[in-house]
Amino acid sequence: MKRPASITVLCVLGYISIVLAFPQVFSPQVKKLGLFMPVLSGVLVAANFMAYVGIWYMKRWGAELFLYSYFLKTILDILYEQTGLLFYSGQLFSLVFSIVLLRYYQRLDQNL
């Protein structure tokens, strides 16, 4: 299936957000939140990246992984009170992405 333009644009934005989020994994602020917080954030960033790759190839597992990681990240951010401007802009982006994904969900490939 040909990738819709909206997904292409959102995926490119997603890749850029990964490049920006990657250094935050080991930032002093995240390190202060706890010993395993950088590990957890790292797992979430990696999962997010894999999800974008999956969505790029129009795979259903990519959309599912994206939704799971988005849900987990939101819980983690709320738990650790990381609800600044970055949080809200991330939420908005993920929400738009989720809506677009749900729209094309039936057309996504079920294989790996």
Binding site: I18, V25, K31, V39, G42, V43, F49, M50, V53
Partner: peptide, 20 residues
């Protein structure tokens, strides 16, 4: 804590750069 952080970053970069 810093050793764990070092290995975590290594695994993360390995996953991200090797996945595609």
């Amino acid at each position: 804590a810093n050793v764990i952080l070092g290995f975590s970053i290594s695994v993360l970069i390995g996953v991200i750069s090797g996945f595609v």
